[in-house]
Structure formats: C-alpha cells, structure tokens
Amino acid sequence: MKHVTNVVLMAFFLGLLVLPVVGVGSLVSLSDFEGFVAGANTVTGEDVNIIPNVQNFNGYVEFAPSEIADGVYRDEVGVTSFQRQRATYRGLYTVYNVSDNKTVSLQLISTGLTGASDAYESLIVSLGDGDYTNALATDVAAGSAVIPVNNTSYYGVGDYVYLGTELAQVVEIGAQELVVEPLKQDHVVGETVYPQSIVVTADALVHPQTQSFILGPGERVQVHVVVQGTASLLKQDQMLHLPLEFRLTEVE
C-alpha cells in the first residue's frame, strides 16, 4: 500500500512539474509552425490558383500580388471608397483548388487598413460563392439572441457574424435562424448579415479573419469586399489599401 501511495505521489509530482510547462508552451498558438516538424505537405501554387479580378472594376481596384509561400499568399489590395455609397466588389478574387486529391482550408486574415481612416465607415471582406450574405427576415430587438435568416450554410458554431455595426458569436444554428449571444443593438428587417468576415471600421480592426472555407479538388470560392464610404470625403472617391493574407492548409 505504501509503494502504491508513493508511486501515485511520484506521478503527481511529475505531472505538477510537466503540466505547467506544457501549458506555458501552448499558451501562444503555434499551429503555423507545427507542420515544420510533422513534415506535413504545404499547399503550393500547383495546388491552388488565386486569381485577382483585374478586369471588372475599371481602375477602382489595385493589386500587389505575390506567390504562395509556406502556404500563405499575400496581397495589398486597393479598393475605392465612394462618398455616401456602399461599394460592393463581388468576386474580387477567385480561389481555385486545382489539385487532384488535396482538400484545402482557406482563411483570410488582415491586420487592418493603412491610413485614410476618414474615407470610410466600414470595410468587410468575406469568403463565399453565390449568396453568401443574408437579409434579416424580421426586426430584431436588443437583448434577443435569435437572428432569423434564410440560408445558414455559411455559418458555423463559434463563428462571429456581423450585422449593422455589431459582431455576435454564433452559439447554435437552427434551420432558418442563428442563435447568438444576446445582441446589444436593435436591428431592422433587411439588414445584411455577414458570415464571419474581416471587419474594419474607421476606429478599429473589429474582426481580423474570415471563416475557414474548405475547398475540395476542383472547387472554388470567391472573395468579396464591401466598403461603406463616409459623407465627408475630401475627394469624391478614395483608394483604401488593405493588407490581406490568404492562409492555405491541407486538410486530412
């Protein structure tokens, strides 16, 4: 009995030594670095094509594209903000999975806009194909935790949806509704509900990343940007530059 007690105490002591160090080691997410050791396949330009839309926006957008390196594609995209208008850039990029057998997860990340903070009220970058947003089906009062939508396919539990000027975390998904943490603001019917997106306002980077979008072989997804211009632009339109990272990881 004495030996058993001592073995248990020894195990407890070793756990007490090791667990805090393991905790310290995992407090900063190193998911980007783990593939280095695991020898995991990195997604390359042979697996995924990222095509900036240089044809359709007639000089109102700019790109500074790069090659995919270490599973990351970087660009500083310029989009024009128009005075008092909401400018929608649908299909600003198209991302194709051209591999034969790789399933790829794509997520967009940004550190926010550089300069010109008086030129826009908000800038939203989303991933999706077809109707990736929803219009609120009814008015929703502050304190409510239910967002009625027509299509829930672009939402996941834990995602942050953006509506009006409010970010809300999804805790449950129903057939035609999203259950979120209680809303702080009133919202009116028809208001746009965005899936988890990069959201930048004049004051802050409200949310830095989109949802992760899974692309099977042969599948594609588009990147969309919506810019709400302010009433007080010095010029009628002004170019905003947003650094973007496309993070591509292979999904087993």
Binding site: S26, L27, V28, S29, S110, E245
Partner: peptide, 8 residues
Amino acid sequence: LPDFVLHD
C-alpha cells in the same frame, strides 16, 4: 487549453 492566436 485556451491559447492566444496572433495573426502574423
């Protein structure tokens, strides 16, 4: 284990 995710 909750962790800090930095975006860069």
